[in-house]
Design a protein around this nucleic acid. Structure first.
Lengths: 289, 289
DNA sequence: ATAATAGTGTCTTTCAGACAGTATAGT
DNA sequence: ACTATACTGTCTGAAAGACACTATTAT
């Protein structure tokens, strides 16, 4: 990848400003799993998936909640920009992250053309973030129309995505349109109603979808868990994200290779004590044994 | 998502130029599947996965091959920019596409900071592209060191990605480093040796990985096929992309719901004639019957 | 007749789903 | 004793893998 001499000459002449440029931001959707308050000494606490949002201090969307983000610094790599942003704005240091999607709709920012490179971040209950609030995530399908066409089908779904905590309830509505036939396959997500800044509710929805999908074929969930956990806790965390009940015996079989038992037990709960497990990072998707 | 009055005032004052901005491009990795020339009247033609590259007319990397790309136009949506670019540069119109990944390494373009939003495009043997060449794709693992660590493992893999046609042989080498333990999970892809412009060989590698993965759980492959095909052809196309042999009877069972039989048969091949099939776009991943 | 593909039948193993049943700690 | 969780065993049926077998057609 050396440059020819000709190239070097060209570089000197290159007019950096001749192309109109967009602004570029990084935005982080930060998730965690937590145990809610417990009423019954015997019962296990309810679990919740949460997202961390900050309240915008300046316009546009002043006082609206938004994902953690900032304009990028051209001297940093993209992921460095994101890490610095997260460190500076909400004081989060260690986390799992992956690039999610790049949003660039013309009108997504009223100021100017802004392209957002979004990231999915996972952390656990232990880390303390500043300068924002955690919100419980509730995702509900409001309706779903599926229509069989000559050569495929089309589907419209309305989704309610509510973010809630002790201070606020943020309701949001998305319309998901799917068109699939022999000529094309198209999926469109429109914001029908948002109480968040910009298109951030859409970004959060993408992040949720990615998380759910990866849950099924990777060990990504352990980035949301404390170091040690019981298998029932693990199961409940899966259930909360996937929004479906799992059968205990089957769950234990399926996850047995992703975890390793410790010698420790959790006691004092008014029922049989449960063994604590750790993540087994040697597990791979392909189960190469 | 209405703006508060306060916001509107701010917009007038907003200094668009106060943040340093990067250049942004879109890059399209275009794949197709083709039948190679046939020697034996009786044998089925060999299949190949190909990528379409254009030779750069101007520096940097003048005369190097590159993915189809251009700087974005701020008046278009991102995917529109990509579609226009592909239409104008190589005259391709109808294709499957999805956003792939956003590449933004500081030094990926010698001119200035350039962020590339890449797309995966699929088309079939019928479409005629101009202004570039198709290259056969050969991916080979050169070596692989896996080391068991106290708490996980690390792995280094060297990959040779050769792009070849009647005019050129472009050899490229990538180093893939994987680090997985209880604290982090990191995958890094480095270009060790490239005969393409910029980091485009890395973009192509990402596209290949995406294609392979999606092959296993979607019906994406039909975007690479002609309207009608035999099941043996379909199987051979899978084999070429996945780089592994499949068993006929099992393959037919697994794909049976994704295709629909036509009444037509392919004859004149020196062996039993084979039924032609079409894609069944009603198939879904979840097999909801 | 032969070479090469087209297509079917079936045995085995593995794994997901369902569910019954046993174990146990704290009040 | 009771309650809520912890954990095991096993039946069933679906699907994946392996492979043997039959069918067909231009030369």
């Amino acid at each position: 990848m050396k440059l020819a001499n000709e190239d070097k000459g060209f570089l000197a002449l290159y007019l950096d400003s001749k192309y109109e440029k967009p602004s570029v931001t990084v935005d982080a959707v930060i998730f965690r799993l937590i145990n809610k308050e417990n009423k019954n000494y015997r019962k296990l606490p309810e679990k919740k998936l949460q997202v961390f949002l900050t309240k915008r201090e300046y316009p546009p969307f002043k006082n609206y909640f938004a994902a953690v983000g900032s304009f990028i610094d051209l001297n940093n790599e993209l992921s460095e920009s994101m890490k610095l942003c997260v460190k500076n704005k909400v004081n989060l240091d260690n986390f799992y992250h992956e690039q999610l999607f790049t949003f660039g709709d013309k009108s997504r920012d009223p100021r100017t053309r802004v392209i957002s490179i979004s990231y999915l971040l996972l952390t656990n209950e232990d880390s303390v973030l500043s300068n924002g609030e955690w919100f419980d995530i509730d995702l509900k399908q409001i309706n779903c129309y599926k229509e069989q066409k000559e050569n495929g089908y089309s589907q419209k779904q309305t989704i309610n995505l509510t973010l809630k905590n002790e201070n606020s309830v943020l309701e949001n509505e998305l319309l998901i349109e799917l068109e699939k036939n022999s000529l094309e396959e198209k999926k469109q997500i429109q914001i029908k109603n948002s109480t968040l800044a910009f298109d951030h509710i859409k970004i959060i929805f993408y992040a949720l979808e990615r998380l759910k999908n990866k849950l099924e074929y990777t060990d990504i969930i352990f980035n949301l868990l404390p170091e040690k956990f019981t298998l029932t806790e693990l199961k409940q965390f899966y259930e909360v994200i996937l929004d479906e009940k799992l059968l205990d015996a089957n769950f234990r079989r399926k996850t047995s290779k992703m975890v390793q038992a410790t010698n420790e037990f959790l006691t004092g709960r008014g029922h049989r004590s449960s063994q604590l497990f750790k993540h087994n990072p040697n597990w791979t998707m392909l189960n190469l044994d």
